[in-house]
Write a protein that binds this DNA or RNA. Sequence first.
DNA 1: TCTATCTTGGACTGGTCGTTCCAAGATAGA
DNA 2: TCTATCTTGGAACGACCAGTCCAAGATAGA
Lengths: 199, 199
Amino acid sequence: MPDVKHFDPDVVLDRVVRLFWQRGADTTGITDIVETTGLSRSSLYATFGDKARLHAAALGRYLEQQSRPVFDALAADTRGLPAIAAFFERLVTARCSGEHARWGCLVTNTHATAGGDLPEIRDILDRHHDALHAAMRAALEAARAAGQLRAGLDLEAAAEALALQAYAVNLRSRAGAEAAGLLAGVRAVLDGFTTTEER
Amino acid sequence: MPDVKHFDPDVVLDRVVRLFWQRGADTTGITDIVETTGLSRSSLYATFGDKARLHAAALGRYLEQQSRPVFDALAADTRGLPAIAAFFERLVTARCSGEHARWGCLVTNTHATAGGDLPEIRDILDRHHDALHAAMRAALEAARAAGQLRAGLDLEAAAEALALQAYAVNLRSRAGAEAAGLLAGVRAVLDGFTTTEER
DNA sequence: TCTATCTTGGACTGGTCGTTCCAAGATAGA
DNA sequence: TCTATCTTGGAACGACCAGTCCAAGATAGA
């Protein structure tokens, strides 16, 4: 009986993700979103609710579409340390050059803002961190199985350290940090985890 | 002949720093600043210029008053690795508990926002990074002199890695990360830099 | 005390914010 | 084709934004 939506919510959400990602959620107005997506305020509010909920929805979409695939690939990569190194090399490249250069990471960017927003947003930040940490942990376990890690390394702590490095890469790259420095920092951490023979 | 200011700009700037630090510069309005500092819009604009310049001034003040003393103490500490460990322990404590708990770091927070603002702001971010990096480097050199570092460690890369860890601690703590996890991550990095005997 | 000069309070501006609302349009089952 | 129901466009809302302006107040040298 009723009418149906004249647009695909996921397509709209992808455009919102790009806006929030590049220009920041706080500094992006509803007017910007209306102009970019082409749909009206009515449709926007009827579909996503108020701006905080839209922000949460965009964050969730970013996590599933942008972050999760990369995390899953890392977790499934059985090479060990080379897989981690490759992850960071691609990360730094994506953050410093190409289409999304100097955009940072939407989830990382959100850490510094949106403090008093929905608990839903905080939850997504936590889910992102858990997923990143778990992927690092899985890759480290593969590295240990391959005998690439020095004896006595705490995998849980090492995974956390690598996750933190990734956040910092995201953060500093947005402010214009050079790729070489970021990669050198990451490599120093990885070298510290490596057996002397492999190093 | 003329009248003089009825307030101390530095005292006002300190209050602005607190506002921007806790609530974010973008989400703090001029009205908030007027109410908190007690002075009028006229005095505010006559003294600091527009909001972007006020933001830059507050950032500079934060760097000199909050960051620089800690960096200088680290650079002057001759203990080596224990000095770096102490730096991070105090950092995590300050970020997760006490008066400024979950405020993060004003400079770190600014990375994720204020992309299109003054080049002056970008400069302060760079100055902050250089100062942090240099302090880490100095502490690492003391550690090497004390024979605490494993052979072949690239001090420049190691200093960058530690600086990045500090940014990530600032970032994740603002989103509610637990102190224990942050400290574990930092310790994993430091352990990787240590000689097997010292470890 | 007088006066030139700066500071201050606060009203005011034009613009933008997020959000609401409703009439008109589209849809699909009856 | 008719109709109930949802969607859509776009006008309108009050609140707030950063920033301006000027008359009144304060100051300190002459």
